[in-house]
C-alpha cells in the first residue's frame, strides 16, 4: 500500500513540474473557427446549420435539451421492448466470485 502511494505521489509530482517546463516552449495557437455551409441544405438541416452560424447560444441550449430528451425517449422504448422478453427487470443478485 505504501509503495502504491509513493508511486502515485511520484506521478503527480512529475506531472506538476512538466507544465512549468512547457511554458517556455511558445505561444498559444489561435482558435479554429468553423462555419457551416448552408447553401446546399434545405428544411430542418438548413435551419439547424443557420442557427449554428447565427445564434450559438440557442444552438447550445437546444442541443443540451435534445440529447437528454432523445435518450430518455429511446430508453423508454428500449425498456418496453426489454420487458416483452419476460425477464425480471427489477432484481439482480450481488455475487463477486
Amino acid at each position: 500500500m505504501r509503495k502504491l502511494w509513493i508511486g502515485l505521489l511520484i506521478i503527480v509530482a512529475a506531472l506538476s513540474v512538466l507544465p512549468e517546463v512547457a511554458m517556455a516552449a511558445g505561444g498559444k495557437a489561435a482558435p479554429l473557427v468553423v462555419v457551416a455551409h448552408t447553401t446546399k441544405l434545405t428544411g430542418l438541416l438548413a435551419w439547424w446549420a443557420n442557427m449554428y452560424n447565427d445564434n450559438m447560444f440557442m444552438f447550445t441550449i437546444l442541443s443540451g435539451i435534445f440529447i437528454p430528451l432523445a435518450g430518455a425517449f429511446l430508453g423508454l422504448i428500449g425498456d418496453f421492448l426489454m420487458g416483452l422478453t419476460g425477464i425480471d427487470l427489477t432484481k439482480r443478485e450481488l455475487v463477486e466470485h
Binding site: 473557427v33 468553423v34 438541416l45 439547424w48 449554428y52 450559438m56 444552438f59 447550445t60 442541443s63 443540451g64 435534445f66 440529447i67 432523445a70 435518450g71 429511446l74 430508453g75 422504448i77 428500449g78 425498456d79 421492448l81 426489454m82
Partner: peptide
C-alpha cells in the same frame, strides 16, 4: 463542446438510435 462549436447533434442523434438499445442491453 457545443458552445465551442464542435458537436454534430444530427450525428449524435443517429448514433443514439443504436446506443440507447445497446446501453439497455
Amino acid at each position: 463542446y457545443t458552445w465551442k462549436g464542435r458537436t454534430e447533434i444530427v450525428g449524435a442523434l443517429i448514433m443514439l438510435c443504436g446506443a440507447a438499445f445497446g446501453a439497455q442491453f
